[in-house]
Simulated assay, not measured.
Amino acid sequence: MRVRERIRAGDREAFGALFDRYAASVHSHACRLTGDLSAAEDVMSETFLAAWRTREQVDPEGGSLRPWLLGIATNKARNHRRGVGRRLAFLARQPKPKETEDFADVSAERLDHQRELAAVRAVLDRLRQPEREVLALCVWAGLDYAQAADALGVPVGTVRSRLSRARTRLRGLAGEHLARERGETAQGRREPRRGRGEVGGRAASVALPGEGGPR
């Protein structure tokens, strides 16, 4: 029995193998869409839970199930962003809690990852949501146009046009960001911290791959 048929039939061993194979990919995709490692872990868990619940919807014919999983993750990340807005609005109405000392043992590597995500998000948040999503699927996740279209439930032409707009917009935003940093340094108002220029460059390079792109 093929993998898709086993998944549809509720084969737990096959689904476990699916998780092992694609969990890291789904988590990375969620990180790029949410900009938060903890949120990405929640999105990943919700993605596989939803995948299990909707397994009977899987087409018995086809190739890799990665585009299907990334499509679910995209929807979960979208819901997360909406939920964050609602939670922030709720917390803003609550009394300020007493300050307590934070004893969280957070590794330097995790903090660096969070800073890098924040730097990229500073640029990506200025894109429209559909453009962010197609950029994450086609550029970072490496899906081709047909796979991204299937994941998002839109025509291939829509994926092409969204990706083109996203790349054009990102080039402009990255240029503005770097020009602003250079201008601040030249005018002597503020010296950039070590590695700051590298973060800006990384935000641009991560978001703007070679022109070959997906097909």
Rank of each mutant, 00 (worst) to 15 (best):
G16R: 13
T100V: 12
N79D: 15
R32W: 03
E198T: 07
T158S: 12
L152Y: 04
L117H: 02
S161V: 02
D20R: 15
A104I: 02
R196Q: 15
G83N: 14
H113N: 07
G200Y: 08
G63C: 05
G63F: 03
F48S: 01
Q94N: 00
R32H: 05
F103V: 15
W140Y: 13
I7T: 02
A174Y: 05
R160N: 03
G172P: 08
R167A: 02
F90H: 12
Q129H: 11
A39G: 00
D36V: 12
E198R: 14
S164W: 05
R189T: 10
L111A: 10
K76P: 08
G172W: 04
D125V: 04
D150G: 14
A50C: 10
P60H: 09
D36Q: 05
D150K: 14
V26G: 04
R171M: 01
E181I: 13
Q129P: 06
A179D: 09
A14F: 00
G175I: 03
A151M: 11
D11C: 01
L124M: 15
K96I: 07
A148F: 02
R6Q: 15
L70Q: 01
R169D: 01
P192A: 10
A166S: 14
P67K: 11
L178E: 05
A204S: 07
A39M: 03
V123D: 05
G213K: 13
T34P: 04
S25C: 01
A141P: 02
E109C: 06
D112R: 15
L70H: 06
I7H: 02
T100F: 09
L170T: 13
L37H: 02
S161P: 04
V134E: 03
G188A: 10
L117S: 08
E211T: 11
A104Y: 06
S45E: 10
E46A: 12
A89V: 10
V106K: 13
R21H: 09
A104N: 10
L117A: 07
G212S: 08
V84Y: 04
T100R: 12
K76Q: 14
G63S: 15
A14R: 05
V106Y: 12
F103R: 14
A149T: 07
Q187G: 12
R193D: 02
G83V: 00
T100P: 06
A40P: 06
E56R: 15
R8A: 06
F15Q: 11
L88Y: 01
P209S: 09
D102R: 12
G62I: 06
L18K: 15
L143T: 00
L69K: 00
D150A: 13
A148K: 00
V123W: 04
L69Q: 04
S107E: 11
Q57D: 12
R8T: 09
V120I: 15
V3W: 12
E131D: 14
